[in-house]
Nucleic acid binder design. Structure first.
Ligand SMILES: [Mn+2]
Ligand SMILES: [Mn+2]
Ligand SMILES: [Mn+2]
Ligand SMILES: [Mn+2]
Lengths: 153, 153
DNA sequence: CACCTATGTTAGCCTTGTCTAACTTTTAGG
DNA sequence: CCTAAAAGTTAGACAAGGCTAACATAGGTG
């Protein structure tokens, strides 16, 4: 018996265990966030300009070039990216697969926010963070709700 | 003229500047996340048990006690928390105000996800991360949509 | 083809948030 | 009132992801 039989307090308590799992899930999401944002952006740049250059990655991420160098080398260690010094960056098959999943998720989240009547700038801004915390379950709910809304429910 | 007059490529490009601002916003949100989660939890524990003890904070956050000690001292430096060594933790007026805002936001996000048909566990889990990336704008849209859905639209 | 400028990398620093191991203080039972 | 267990703190390590300053390379232009 948790909290030794209290008289049902005000705040709803899901239990310490469940709450701890929630926070752990958030911490895990943040661990993969850098990789996800990078591969997604690299895929976009390749589509947009034929190649992904550190200079462009840095500009679009809003970070300085040395940060990109360091993080790209982490992605290379993780097998998501292939590249030779001073050359453009490419995605490995694993990187392409991850990028595709991330772009899909990003698109779904943005479309959903837009369908709620949120302006495009805000939708993109919020989606950039939200995307990493959306379970597959929730993502599907977003998809369903988007079409429902679009049929001006 | 950005990208020197291309022939409208496949991927939609919001411009490097806007994209960088989005990522900067996410980084900022992550900077305040620790403080937000702690004061929210401290407020919950005070309501639930009359006081907030490090041991309970650690358990519910899923971290070890020394982590809590260190972070609480950061919150104290930030003026959000007041406490004496070995004693329970309390919120300053600033801390209470922040906690109240965070709890409201958390509740709105959870209610919204539930209204979408998501199960409670998933809703709580996803909300714990999403809450920090929801602009006031989006939060209001969530509120409106929740009532719309509850009237089984 | 030599050189200047863009681009990229390296080295080294900082902050945040986590941990373990060891120590201290509080508190409850006998 | 003493003492053992629970709770809390301190010290020190580590990884991630930022930064600046300084150096290295690649490539387009004169
Ligand atoms: Mn993102
Ligand atoms: Mn949270
Ligand atoms: Mn929360
Ligand atoms: Mn986040």
């Amino acid at each position: 018996m948790p909290t030794h039989g209290r008289v049902t307090p005000d705040a709803t308590d899901r239990g310490a265990k469940a709450q701890a799992e929630g926070f752990a899930t958030v911490r895990q999401a943040h661990e993969s966030e850098m990789a996800e944002d990078y591969v997604e952006l690299i895929a976009e740049l390749i589509e947009l300009q034929g190649e992904a250059r550190p200079v462009d990655i840095a500009e679009r991420l809003g970070v300085k070039p040395p940060t990109v160098t360091k993080n790209i080398s982490r992605l290379k260690d993780a097998g998501l990216v292939s590249r030779e010094r001073y050359r453009a960056i490419f995605l490995t098959p694993a990187g392409q697969k991850l990028a595709e999943a991330c772009r899909r998720r990003h698109r779904i989240v943005v479309a959903f926010l837009l369908s709620l009547g949120i302006d495009e700038d805000t939708a993109e801004r919020d989606a950039e963070g939200i995307e990493h915390h959306v379970s597959e379950n929730t993502l599907e709910a977003f998809e369903r709700a988007t079409s429902r809304f679009e049929k001006k429910c």
